[in-house]
């Protein structure tokens, strides 16, 4: 309260949710380190990155959408569609990766663009439009094929299996580097460009943003395009990880992405939140899975129950902060 005199007030307040998430991550890591042998190593953290690089990229796109106050349910399906298109084009006609990957990214962005355009120009709720997009992308997957398609392209598999060695015995995959570059670019865009600030303004108060002369329509269409692009890129990263294309890949990933964004402190009503929070949110989700795999005796459904509980705790923790920002 002493900080809330006049003005200097809420600079720390707005970072609090991110701080809480960060502390939770550290606490979970420490607890895991005490409980399990071999847990407290740098590589465990890096593995969380390696296993969740695709989710991180998808969650970045989701953050843009949620910051404008929208939502994108299609991301999981677009990820699956991307793996499917990539695998079928490389396996069937044998197209080279440097043609396939840009094509996949283009298709994903295109889908996002169309969804954004429908949402904006016909004023239909994003929830519904992206739900239709989810059905469409999943349906397209099954139209391409109902079975899993393995990826055997030499360049593609070689890249996927590359290990980038860091100091000591630590290593990461190229996907992690790509994901971190995406995060860095996205953070720059959100903080330092007019488009980024329009995203926040649109989420804060769309009417005002419109009356202030901001390009609200373009901003909204663009965020869905960004999300489509990120989903497609996430799909490419998932193809690296799985080395296959399958219509049942990434089922429910939209929920993971939304959960990560929420745990990262971004309000679903839009306008408030940071990309760093999303990164931490993804890491927390990943660490839960790591802990459950270390525990060994726990069944997979405990993951879901645990994530549910965690969402609950986080939402409760963040309520006072979000309340203060709103008023």
């Amino acid at each position: 309260m002493t900080a809330l005199t006049f003005g200097r007030a809420s600079v720390p307040v707005k970072y609090l949710p991110v701080l809480v998430t960060g502390c939770l991550f550290v606490a979970m890591f420490v607890a895991g380190g005490i409980r399990y042998e071999g847990f407290a190593s740098g590589q465990v953290v890096l593995n969380v990155f390696i296993d969740n690089a695709f989710l991180l990229v998808v969650a970045v796109g989701m953050t843009f959408v949620i910051l404008t106050g929208g939502i994108d349910l299609s991301v999981g399906s677009v990820v699956a569609l991307s793996t499917m298109i990539a695998a079928s084009l490389m396996e069937g006609p044998g197209w080279p990766p440097y043609v396939v990957v840009p094509l996949v990214l283009l298709i994903g962005s295109g889908l996002g663009l169309v969804m954004g355009w429908i949402i904006q120009s016909f004023d239909i709720q994003p929830f519904i439009v992206t739900l239709a997009g989810m059905f469409l992308a999943r349906g397209l997957c099954y139209t391409i094929g109902t079975d899993s398609i393995p990826i055997r392209d030499a360049t593609f598999t070689a890249f996927a299996q590359t290990r980038i060695d860091l100091f000591a015995d630590l290593w990461v995959s190229p996907s992690v580097v790509i994901a971190l570059v995406v995060v860095a670019v996205a953070a720059y865009v959100l903080h330092y460009t007019r488009f980024g600030r329009s995203v926040y303004a649109t989420g804060g108060n769309e009417q005002s943003a419109l009356l202030m002369g901001l390009p609200v329509a373009r901003t909204k269409i663009t965020v869905y395009t960004v999300s489509g692009f990120c989903s497609a890129l996430g799909g490419v990263l998932l193809s690296f990880y799985m080395l296959s294309g399958y219509g049942l890949h990434a089922v429910g990933m939209e929920l993971d992405a939304i959960a990560a964004v929420v745990i990262g402190g971004t309000l679903l009503t839009g306008g408030t939140g940071f990309l760093l929070g999303t990164v931490l949110g993804v890491l927390v989700l990943g660490l839960i899975q790591t802990i459950i795999s270390f525990e060994g005796t726990l069944n997979s459904w405990w993951t879901k129950i645990f994530i549910g509980l965690l969402l609950f705790v986080f939402i409760l923790l963040q309520r006072p902060f979000s309340g203060r920002v709103r008023r």
Partner: peptide
């Protein structure tokens, strides 16, 4: 969303 995720596990 909490119950959607946790409920499946339940």
């Amino acid at each position: 969303l909490i119950l959607m995720v946790a409920g499946r596990g339940l």
